[in-house]
């Protein structure tokens, strides 16, 4: 099992960037607990298509969200080469399925841009900002509150 722990740095502006399809996305490093290779999940009945299933994270049941499906892109067919980014937001722990983790980047304020009005794309709702990178890539920063399935008794969205 591939597994890689990320040093937690106090610098607020660090992000973890990863690829889904041919697009670059990123999330705050603060919410990331660990990154691990994909392992087969247990399918949850009646779950929306973006919930791949649940995995065992050292004794805790963690749901895995297929980010591609969540963002309205074609559903991922996971292989052991895919990665699961374990994030913890509001005491809820969730795995995010992505193609590959590319980098940990320090972001400087000037490169954060608002999302231009691109029309009613389903992905648009999940993006808070765009970050332009020196090498010309554009990182789409994800809104974790919208990505995560609802927890605590409520029906998962």
């Amino acid at each position: 099992m591939r597994q890689m722990l990320i040093e937690h740095t106090p610098d607020q502006s660090d992000v973890v960037s990863f690829r889904i399809g041919d697009q670059d996305y990123c999330i705050d490093i603060d919410v990331v607990r660990e990154i691990r290779g994909w392992s087969p999940t247990t399918v949850l009945p009646h779950s929306p298509p973006h919930i791949t299933g649940v995995i065992n994270l050292r004794g805790t049941v963690v749901a895995v969200v297929d980010l591609a499906a969540r963002l309205g892109l074609p559903q991922t067919v996971p292989t052991p080469r895919h990665v699961v980014i374990i994030v913890s937001v509001n005491s809820q722990t969730v795995g995010l399925l992505a193609d590959v983790v590319s980098d940990i980047l320090g972001i400087d304020e000037g490169s954060v841009k608002p999302v231009p009005d691109v029309g009613p794309d389903p992905t648009r709702a999940f993006i808070t900002n765009l970050i332009t990178h020196d090498d010309g890539r554009i990182l789409r920063k994800l809104d974790m509150d919208k990505i995560l399935p609802r927890s605590a008794g409520g029906q998962p969205s």
Binding site: L44, P45, H46, S47, I51, V54, G59, T60, V61, V62, A63, Q92, T93, V94, P149, R150, S151, A152, G153, G154, Q155, P156
Partner: peptide, 13 residues
């Protein structure tokens, strides 16, 4: 193991 902590209620489970 609880499912509700990290996910939510699943019908029939």
């Amino acid at each position: 193991k609880s499912l509700e902590d990290n996910y939510g209620d699943v019908p029939g489970i």
